[in-house]
Amino acid sequence: MPVKLSLQVNGKAASAQIEPRMLLLDLLREELRLTGAHQGCDTAQCGACTVHLNGKAVKSCNVLALQAQGGEVVTIEGITPADGSLHPMQAAFRDHHGLQCGFCTPGMVMSALDLLNRNPHPTRDQIREELDGNLCRCTGYHNIVSAIEAGAKAMG
């Protein structure tokens, strides 16, 4: 039986009638047409679907949309300035070649911002540790770590 879901997504109120089994990722992509969070492994391993729920990074492929009832979700679309320019962390990924195919990048950026919320000036080792839940099959991580380091500096 469909259930009404109401929440904030990227600062705006959103609501939908959904089946309880709908995942948060599917709500974002299919109902709200926010396709920045990606479905990679679909088994809560790769982190391409990472979004922030109530200020904390979660894997949206492993969360029911209804678990976000009344909550606040921020996706990669929500961090971009209104003028269409890049967020400093996104710019750092571009400047440091922190991506090749780009599939994992939205999750990497959202995880990086979650890290900086708790630790604004992480070391390279801490960055590597924190990327435990984000897999990239192209880059070997080196440039991603450099991008996050630079993004942190740019964000002060």
Partner: peptide, 9 residues
């Protein structure tokens, strides 16, 4: 336990 995102849920 697990990774950062798993530990948040």
């Amino acid at each position: 336990i697990g990774d950062r995102m798993v530990r948040n849920m």
